Computed example of a mutant assay.
Amino acid sequence: MPQTILYARVSTTDQTLAHQKTQAEKAGFKLDEVVADHGVSGVSTVLRERPEGKRLFDKLRKGDVLVVRWVDRLGRNYQDVTDTIREFMRRGVVIRTVINNMTFNGATTDPMQEAVRDALIAFMAATAQAQAEATKEAQKAGIEAAKGITGKYRGKKPSYDRDTLSQVQTMAAQGAGTTTIAKATGLSRQTVLRIKDDPVAAEAALERWGA
């Protein structure tokens, strides 16, 4: 019997996986199982080499639905993400995203539809990698900024954690509006705007509070 499986991933030990499951359920997905990797980088570790990622490849069968919050949960390496999605589609697996409720499968045989689908997958995978690279630079800048104020006033504690910051940045990269992002994350519009306008400062605020 086909199953609906959520794959969740967080890259650092201070992040949590629970919200990805909650988001999927709120979006209407009836999950049979959750497969999750905790503290695993989507940049340096391809899906097949992650402890639970390996199990995902073993589990998925024709007719199954693979749910991910967004393609960046599969990985942030362009080649890995595109190869993974295409392999799953060849197996007859349907891939669905929680954000924007997108669906990818190998059912279509129309060349034009295939071209549009593949171009969209490529764009999403490229966006995931570009976002990872931008975040890495922001983290570096944030750490340097934090070093300069050690022992001094840290400012107001951020109303977001790393998970939420990542979600804001991902949705912003996809072109989501401020109001949409605020509703999805539970943050105020003002906070979302500050993060979008200055991601380096947003990262620095977390560093100052040791988050």
Rank of each mutant, 00 (worst) to 15 (best):
Q3E: 09
Q3D: 13
T4S: 06
I5W: 08
R9Y: 06
V10W: 03
T13I: 06
Q15E: 13
T16P: 01
T16G: 08
A24V: 07
K26R: 15
L31N: 07
D32K: 14
A36T: 12
A36V: 12
D37E: 12
H38F: 14
G42A: 13
G53M: 02
R55S: 11
F57K: 08
D58N: 12
G63N: 09
V65P: 00
V67G: 02
V71I: 15
R73I: 09
L74Q: 00
Y78I: 01
Y78E: 11
R86A: 07
E87N: 14
I95P: 00
R96Y: 05
N101A: 14
F104D: 00
G106N: 05
T108N: 10
T108S: 11
P111N: 09
Q113M: 10
E114I: 15
E114W: 06
F123M: 12
A125Q: 07
T127K: 08
T127C: 08
Q129P: 05
K140P: 02
K140V: 11
A141W: 01
K156L: 13
T164K: 08
V168T: 11
Q174D: 11
A176Q: 13
A176N: 09
A176H: 09
G177S: 15
A182K: 02
K183L: 07
K183W: 03
R189A: 14
T191K: 02
L193E: 14
R194C: 07
D198Q: 10
A201P: 02
L206Y: 05
E207A: 14
W209T: 04
A211D: 12
